[in-house]
């Protein structure tokens, strides 16, 4: 379980997150949504202790994250963050093996067991045959799967993902999020696409200017009124099978769904 209690986070003299609380229970997929600059990524970074909150407490399974040492934390939480790609020709196998650092500590050599765990993780996300390819040569969808494989090799039971569907086409967006859901781990995920959030998250927290404006199931959070207020667009709710689907239009235009 990941929980944040009344946290405030800031850079220099500016508070980016103010008095935010959230809780992702075992196996839940919690979506963080909100417009650009609403503090989603900052909040996520605070959850894995890359940032320290000015006030409030982040805890994982009851332990405050700031009290956990680096690898202790890495055994509990695995992260897929936005990162500028490196120039160096790193292979997929080495990339995934790195996830084992959390289990082995920073200094021990990787043994056969680590290689097995990496192979299993690659197989689980369907990219075992990419093991000897250079990471930089993969497509966007393949890269995201490799990063997920690294998270799996890390064997943490909490996952944090920062806009993992960026740069993916529609099919790969759905595939990725379905995979994340199937893992059955406690997950916090920053998403821009509200329809993806509605479909794949069990719970949503909507942020606006660093504060929580709504918190609950997708059905209760994604109301036309709230979306109009927070995103300043019109949103029409339609049902697509069992799923909630939103159709957006600029405020100046009226929405008509036929």
């Amino acid at each position: 379980m990941i929980s944040a209690q009344d946290i405030s986070v800031g850079y220099d003299d500016r508070l980016v997150i103010q008095g935010v609380s959230l809780e992702a229970g075992p196996g839940e997929v919690l979506g963080l949504i909100g417009p650009n600059g609403s503090g989603k990524s900052t909040l996520l970074r605070t959850l894995y202790a890359a940032l320290r909150p000015r006030a409030g407490l982040v805890s994982i399974d009851g332990d405050p994250v700031t009290a956990l040492r680096g690898t202790e934390l890495a055994r509990k939480i695995a992260v897929v963050a936005q990162e500028t790609p490196s120039d160096l020709p790193i292979t997929v196998a080495d990339m995934v093996l790195l996830g084992r650092t959390a289990q082995r500590g920073a200094l021990a050599a990787f043994d056969r067991e680590d290689h097995r765990a990496a192979a299993q993780a690659l197989t689980r996300v369907g990219v075992r045959d990419l093991a000897d390819r250079r990471y930089a040569t993969l497509s966007g969808g393949e890269k995201q799967r490799v990063l997920i494989a690294r998270m799996l090799a890390q064997q943490a039971d909490h996952l944090l993902l920062d806009e993992p569907t960026n740069h993916l086409d529609i099919r790969h967006q759905h595939e990725l999020l379905r995979l994340v859901g199937q893992l059955g781990l406690t997950t916090v995920i920053v998403l821009h696409d509200l329809n993806l959030a509605a479909r794949y998250c069990t719970k949503l927290v909507m942020l606006q200017r660093g504060r929580v404006v709504a918190n609950g199931t997708p059905d209760t959070v994604l109301t036309s009124e709230l979306i109009r207020e927070v995103y300043e667009v019109n949103a029409e709710r339609v049902s697509l099978g069992a799923h909630l689907q939103l159709v957006f239009s600029p405020l100046e235009e009226a929405v008509t769904v036929s």
Partner: peptide, 23 residues
Amino acid sequence: LYWARPLDALAIGDGTAQTLGLS
């Protein structure tokens, strides 16, 4: 060589190093 693994992580990115428990 003692820092070989941390160097591997740094080569990928500071964020990666951090999330693997390194500074």
